[in-house]
Amino acid sequence: MPLLRITHQRGAFTAAQKAQLAEQLTAAILVAEVGADTPAGRAVAYVLFDEVDPKSEWFVGGKPDLDPPKGGRFLFDVVYPFGAASQLDKTALHARINAIVAQTLDVDGTFPQRGGDWVLIHEVPDGNWGASGQTIGIREINQVAGGTPERADYFEPLLAAQKRGYQAHGYPEQASRP
């Protein structure tokens, strides 16, 4: 159930480029979250485009961004449940998003040329994600999205370690899910 919110400068993308980006980025965020691009995962993967005016709503160094690089600037906010992606998965996602944008816009995607395009991965702590009126976490999301079984090899020990940490520091039992 990944969510990708792309904040971009007005006019950065054509409708065709948005469609291409949505298609390719959906695959990228699903692979990073559950290890596979599946039809079940696509049914719950969101890509949202938030367009802002660089003259009045996007500031760099305290001033309106009147001289952006070719294609403008971008902020990619990726939202995953805690435990969804290892650091290797996150690093691969950073590179994949950059490559997709560079190819779509026909720009040099290397750093520092695109150093103003940020990819931020936000992990929602277990117990804070809800759907259909119930609290869900990475276990449920991996199952619903058709994630790979190998993904559990990463998140199960991570969740168990988090629970042990809560217990060792005296958190109430209600602070961690079973």
Score class of each variant (00 low, 15 high):
residue 2 P to M: 10
residue 3 L to I: 05
residue 4 L to Y: 05
residue 6 I to W: 00
residue 6 I to N: 03
residue 6 I to C: 06
residue 14 T to I: 11
residue 15 A to P: 10
residue 15 A to G: 14
residue 16 A to Q: 10
residue 17 Q to H: 03
residue 17 Q to G: 00
residue 17 Q to M: 02
residue 18 K to V: 05
residue 18 K to R: 06
residue 19 A to S: 07
residue 19 A to V: 08
residue 22 A to C: 12
residue 24 Q to F: 02
residue 27 A to D: 11
residue 27 A to C: 14
residue 27 A to K: 12
residue 29 I to L: 08
residue 30 L to V: 10
residue 31 V to Q: 00
residue 31 V to G: 03
residue 31 V to S: 01
residue 32 A to I: 08
residue 32 A to Y: 06
residue 33 E to C: 08
residue 34 V to A: 15
residue 34 V to M: 15
residue 36 A to M: 04
residue 37 D to C: 13
residue 37 D to K: 11
residue 39 P to W: 14
residue 39 P to H: 15
residue 40 A to Y: 09
residue 41 G to Y: 09
residue 42 R to E: 03
residue 44 V to L: 13
residue 45 A to I: 07
residue 45 A to D: 06
residue 46 Y to W: 13
residue 47 V to M: 09
residue 48 L to Y: 08
residue 48 L to K: 10
residue 50 D to W: 03
residue 50 D to R: 06
residue 51 E to W: 04
residue 52 V to K: 02
residue 52 V to I: 00
residue 53 D to V: 00
residue 53 D to S: 02
residue 53 D to Q: 00
residue 54 P to R: 01
residue 56 S to G: 05
residue 56 S to T: 06
residue 56 S to D: 03
residue 57 E to Y: 15
residue 58 W to M: 04
residue 58 W to Q: 01
residue 58 W to N: 03
residue 60 V to I: 02
residue 61 G to D: 08
residue 63 K to M: 08
residue 64 P to D: 03
residue 70 K to F: 06
residue 70 K to S: 08
residue 72 G to T: 01
residue 77 D to Q: 12
residue 79 V to L: 09
residue 79 V to E: 07
residue 80 Y to I: 11
residue 83 G to Q: 10
residue 84 A to M: 15
residue 84 A to P: 12
residue 85 A to I: 03
residue 87 Q to S: 15
residue 88 L to V: 01
residue 89 D to H: 15
residue 89 D to Q: 15
residue 90 K to M: 13
residue 90 K to Y: 12
residue 91 T to H: 14
residue 91 T to R: 15
residue 92 A to I: 13
residue 94 H to G: 13
residue 94 H to M: 15
residue 96 R to I: 07
residue 96 R to V: 07
residue 96 R to E: 06
residue 97 I to P: 05
residue 97 I to K: 04
residue 103 Q to W: 14
residue 103 Q to E: 15
residue 106 D to N: 12
residue 107 V to T: 07
residue 107 V to Q: 00
residue 109 G to R: 10
residue 113 Q to G: 15
residue 117 D to Q: 00
residue 118 W to Q: 02
residue 118 W to E: 02
residue 121 I to C: 01
residue 126 D to V: 01
residue 128 N to Y: 04
residue 132 S to W: 14
residue 132 S to E: 14
residue 134 Q to N: 11
residue 135 T to M: 04
residue 135 T to N: 05
residue 136 I to F: 11
residue 136 I to P: 07
residue 137 G to S: 14
residue 137 G to C: 12
residue 137 G to Y: 09
residue 138 I to S: 03
residue 138 I to M: 08
residue 138 I to H: 03
residue 139 R to A: 07
residue 141 I to H: 00
residue 142 N to F: 01
residue 142 N to A: 08
residue 142 N to P: 05
residue 142 N to D: 07
residue 143 Q to G: 13
residue 143 Q to K: 15
residue 145 A to R: 02
residue 147 G to Y: 04
residue 149 P to G: 06
residue 150 E to C: 08
residue 152 A to R: 04
residue 153 D to P: 02
residue 155 F to R: 03
residue 156 E to Y: 11
residue 156 E to M: 11
residue 157 P to G: 11
residue 157 P to V: 09
residue 157 P to C: 11
residue 158 L to G: 04
residue 159 L to F: 02
residue 162 Q to P: 00
residue 166 Y to F: 13
residue 168 A to C: 05
residue 169 H to V: 08
residue 170 G to I: 09
residue 170 G to H: 09
residue 171 Y to V: 04
residue 171 Y to R: 06
residue 173 E to C: 02
residue 175 A to T: 12
residue 178 P to D: 12
